[in-house]
Simulated scan of single mutants.
Amino acid sequence: MKKRLIQIFGFLISSLGWLFILCTMAMDYWRISQIGGEGGSFIIKVAWYWSNLWKDCLTDSTAVTNCRDYGVLWSVLYVQAVRGLLICGLTIGFFAVVCCFIGMECTYIGGPEPTKDKLVFSGAVFHFVGGEY
């Protein structure tokens, strides 16, 4: 019983880690900075610059947003590296979730006990390699 509870708890925690990385890919506001709004002018115009892995955007004080997608692959190298690492982590994490689910003691798929133990171990290795620990 204790082994089953530990496996279920570990599966839930590792699956949540994979889900959080998946949510990170869709976040819009990775970097935000305010432009303008200095005192001393009669018209105070403020704009917010924000960017994520997919685009750069500028929102002004009239709530008009202008976005520009990253068109050239090598234009912003560190963004491309983060994109690649996140997508690799998601792919490896997906295989880890599947291996851990099949290898858990409380599921009826996966074969005999030694095979299930190997699947759980390989799922744990995939989670560590994918960065979801």
Rank of each mutant, 00 (worst) to 15 (best):
K55W: 14
T65A: 09
A47L: 02
I44S: 15
C88T: 12
W18S: 03
G89M: 01
A124R: 09
M25C: 04
V72W: 15
I32R: 10
K3E: 12
V46N: 14
L85H: 07
F11R: 03
Q34E: 15
D117Q: 14
G103M: 00
I35C: 02
V129G: 05
P112K: 09
G84W: 09
I109N: 08
Q34K: 11
N66D: 08
L12Q: 04
W54Y: 13
L22N: 02
Y108G: 15
F121W: 10
S41T: 15
I92H: 03
T91L: 06
G10K: 01
G39A: 14
G71D: 14
G40L: 02
L22K: 00
T107Q: 01
Y29Q: 10
I92E: 06
G17T: 00
W74L: 13
L12A: 13
C88Q: 07
A81W: 11
C88S: 14
H127D: 10
F121G: 04
T107V: 01
V82W: 13
W74R: 05
F126W: 02
Q34M: 09
C100V: 10
G130S: 07
I21P: 00
W48F: 14
I44Q: 15
G110R: 04
S75Y: 10
A26F: 12
L5P: 00
T59I: 07
Y49C: 04
D69S: 14
V82A: 15
